[in-house]
Design a protein around this nucleic acid. Structure first.
Ligand SMILES: [Mn+2]
Ligand SMILES: [Mn+2]
Ligand SMILES: [Zn+2]
Ligand SMILES: [Zn+2]
Lengths: 154, 154
DNA sequence: TTGTTACATTGGAATGGTTCTCATCTGTTA
DNA sequence: TAACAGATGAGAACCATTCCAATGTAACAA
């Protein structure tokens, strides 16, 4: 079970979004807030086996889809065939390893401006009414660089 | 069948990448070069029914996966459940409609710098050896704005 | 040209992540 | 506390994609 602080925070988030507060939703959201491993449905289910031993897979999918609709959570693909989920409390983007699928959070000062500029330009050019964006950068994570015997500077 | 110019161009692309030149690969690549509709496997199969009436679905998947490995083609998801493919001859990114799934190409002067900067920052922060990136911007396309009766300025 | 061989194609079966169905349960509101 | 819209859960269904094994063929060298 997540900490009291996290449970209170997530309870408030659910209420703010006018989502019915069920134990399943509360616990799943708390899990996501306190784990930034970008879990799959399977990972979440395993991680919650103590708290929710009888939860159905459909409930996890339904819950996550609801969170995605409310922009609380984003979906990520890393090429392993299943969808990864990420609580999106603070803006960031992802670096994804093309070899092992590792997903890490990235942000830097000025990233928010880059993002805003991209959205503004896109609106002007395409006429779309922008609601969000995703940026992903691909490459080899440090461990895979070593594992594959690749030198950085050559 | 695509134009002679496209057939020559795609033939050269296949050779440059040391890919065995089969009719299937040649025709699929020519299709992608001359169609920027971001087709699915099904769309491609339909579009090629004249040229390759007996092509197997696995061949299209195999071929596209090969092209993706060689960075000739990128994969896109628009939420309709199937993967969309895009020949990536010139750098650009995508605006995706969250209502109807329409995918349009976007680029602007300076986009290349934005991209390079993002990759550079990511390499510094994450230690990843960067090989590429994807940027996507989400929103409502002009048609869906009208269809849904949403006003731009209010 | 021809032979060799590694690789590509095919159709069908298998896979597996996600959605669907529907009976049951429950959080919310009055 | 009653009523009900909405959520849950088990399993079936879905379907995009991959796997498999037999057949075909592009590329290369002699
Ligand atoms: Mn993240
Ligand atoms: Mn495109
Ligand atoms: Zn890695
Ligand atoms: Zn649209």
């Amino acid at each position: 079970m997540a900490s009291n602080a996290v449970m209170e925070e997530t309870l408030q988030v659910l209420k703010d979004h006018k989502l019915r507060v069920t134990p399943q939703r509360h616990i799943i959201l708390a899990y996501l807030v306190s784990h930034h491993n970008h879990p799959t449905v399977e990972t979440i289910r395993d991680g919650l086996s103590k708290d929710l031993p009888n939860i159905g897979a459909s409930t996890i999918y339904n819950t996550l889809n609801t969170f995605v609709d409310h922009h609380l959570v984003v979906e990520l693909q890393n090429g392993d065939g299943s969808t990864h989920y990420d609580y999106f409390g603070t803006p960031h983007y992802h670096a994804i390893c093309t070899n092992c699928g590792r997903i890490v959070d990235v942000t830097y000062p000025g990233f928010s401006d880059t993002e805003k500029n991209l959205e503004k330009k896109t609106a002007e050019i395409s006429g779309y009414m922008i609601s969000g964006n995703h940026m992903e950068v691909y490459g080899l994570c440090p461990e895979c660089q070593i594992k594959l015997g690749i030198k950085k500077n050559d």
